[in-house]
């Protein structure tokens, strides 16, 4: 009997497993973004201070996470961290840790850039009105910084979502890992199944990332 490849998606609980894998990718990305953005905003502000030591340390931190490939980072937190520091967290939380540190590094640079892009005269104008430094940040700089950084932050979010596809290397049952298992299990019955499974994954990632990407593009165009 000839089987249509598309049926592989609906064999047993395959579709539900793929959706569960996608949900794992989404929540790891979401929690990593929440933690990473919170740390990143603090690091970004610290990087605009005049203290050279703090700026140097945070610059080294940023460069480390920029230079080291994400896959190496995942190996580091999954294999080396537990052995060295006797940390026994589940793989998903190790992934959240790695991604949060990476997001914090990238976002700190976005925040620093946005703060530095607000014209100096805006600061002076606020100070000349008697605003304290906290009021100046809260009412003048922060709203402008958010507007300036939003497109880059959305782009960072799309990168994080896409990069969750690497989580299979530390055995997390995210959507790619589930897909591999389905393909291997059904390879003989559905020789063209790989096309349909990865086709569905393409659509799922597209549905997740394209609206974000389009939003970032719209914001960027509005700023021009």
């Amino acid at each position: 009997m000839v089987h249509s490849g598309i049926n592989v998606l609906f064999e047993g609980s395959n579709f539900a497993r793929l959706m569960a894998g996608l949900w794992t990718s989404i929540w790891i990305a979401a929690i990593s973004l929440i933690i990473g953005l919170a740390i990143g905003i603090i690091f970004g502000i610290l990087r605009t201070l005049s203290n050279k030591f703090i700026r140097f340390i945070l610059r080294v931190y940023l460069e480390f996470f920029r230079i080291v490939p994400t896959i190496v980072l995942l190996y580091l937190v999954y294999y080396i961290l537990p052995r060295t520091f006797h940390v026994n967290w589940p793989a998903t939380w190790m992934a959240v840790l790695a991604f949060s540190l990476w997001v914090a590094a990238e976002f700190s640079d976005i925040v620093r850039g946005a703060i530095e892009s607000v014209p100096k005269s805006q600061r002076e104008s606020g100070l000349a009105l008697g605003l304290s430094k906290i009021q100046l940040f809260r009412y003048v700089l922060l709203p402008q910084v958010i507007k300036l950084e939003l497109p880059a932050t959305i782009n960072l979010a799309t990168r994080v979502i896409k990069t969750t596809s690497l989580l299979l290397v530390i055995s997390i049952m995210e959507v790619i890992n589930v897909a591999q298992q389905i393909i291997e299990a059904n390879n003989q019955q559905y020789p063209t199944g790989v096309f349909w499974v990865y086709g569905l994954i393409f659509i799922l990632y597209f549905v997740l990332d394209y609206p974000l990407s389009a939003w970032a593009k719209k914001l960027t165009n509005e700023r021009k």
Binding site: S125, A128, L129, L131, Y139, Q144
Partner: peptide
Amino acid sequence: MVFQSYDLFPNLTVIENVLLAPVKV
């Protein structure tokens, strides 16, 4: 102090620009 380049806060409306310091400071 008033500057050459006006330096109104672009995120605030005219009235919000005027009210910010008297109300908050």
